[in-house]
């Protein structure tokens, strides 16, 4: 019964989509706003990666909202899981020496790679969110490989999370006060194109986002691993 209802509903949705997609040619032209970003984004923002200049410069307010959603989800996760009282104890076996040593050996290079990804966000395909996810994967490796030996430092992760969020908002407010007076204005000098120290505030905001996202995702992993 449920399957029949589901299939009928899907056929209705598919018919609607098919009729609307027939007017949409595939792979032919860009939208007007995309043409503006591609032709002028290089000179206006100084970032080689146009996606970064859209995320951090043209639509930075949107990104602030996105970071807030991630923050709210981390808080919600903590609130949902915090009230569980009984924690069952499970039999765990200690990881072998090769596994735990390998994880400890791999941890610093993965953190370094994540930092490279978010520092070079305006030059290469990468950025704060991707770099933060890589850093969180390093913590996940530590939790899986060296089970129960090392935990995330709670104060340290809260500190870097708050620092990242504050840096984002404060840079935005400075942009409101200086120059052309709008929120998250790119007020710093653009520098030489396609070098590390270019694109004004974009690398700074991306480093702040990288710290924030890395700390939040590590905290989510920490909370979920603690319960299971």
């Amino acid at each position: 019964m449920r399957k029949c209802i589901g299939i009928i509903l899907l056929i209705i949705i598919a018919w609607g989509i098919l009729t609307s997609l027939q007017t949409m040619p595939f792979g032919v032209s860009r939208a007007k706003v995309a043409n503006h970003y591609i032709n002028n984004g290089k000179d206006e923002t100084g970032a080689a990666n146009i996606v970064t200049s859209v995320v951090i410069n043209y639509r930075a307010f949107d990104t602030l909202g996105e970071v807030t959603v991630l923050f709210l989800s981390a808080i919600g996760l903590g609130a949902v899981l915090a009230t569980i009282k009984t924690r069952e104890k499970r039999d765990t076996e200690k990881a072998s020496l090769i596994l735990s040593t390998g994880c400890r050996f791999l941890f610093p290079p993965i953190i370094l790679f994540g930092a490279y990804i978010f520092i070079h966000g305006h030059l290469t395909p990468g950025g704060g969110f991707q770099g933060g996810a890589i850093i969180a994967s390093a913590f996940l490796l530590m939790y899986l490989g060296c089970h129960g030996e090392k935990r995330l430092n709670d104060r340290c992760s809260t500190f870097s999370e708050s620092l990242g969020g504050l840096a984002f908002v404060i840079i935005g407010l400075i942009g409101l006060a200086v120059g052309t007076h709008y929120f998250l204005n790119n007020f710093m000098p653009l520098g030489k194109f396609n070098t590390l120290l270019s694109a004004g505030v974009i690398p700074i905001i991306y480093i702040a986002i990288g710290f924030k996202v890395g700390a939040e995702l590590s905290k989510i992993i920490d909370l979920l691993m603690e319960e299971s």
Binding site: V51, T63, E66, S73, A74, L77, I220, L224
Partner: peptide, 22 residues
Amino acid sequence: VDPVPQALVLTAIVIGLAVLSL
């Protein structure tokens, strides 16, 4: 290619991760 959908999908992946964890 158009950079705006790519920026939107970057947002959508992170939001999806938040929803999944919740």
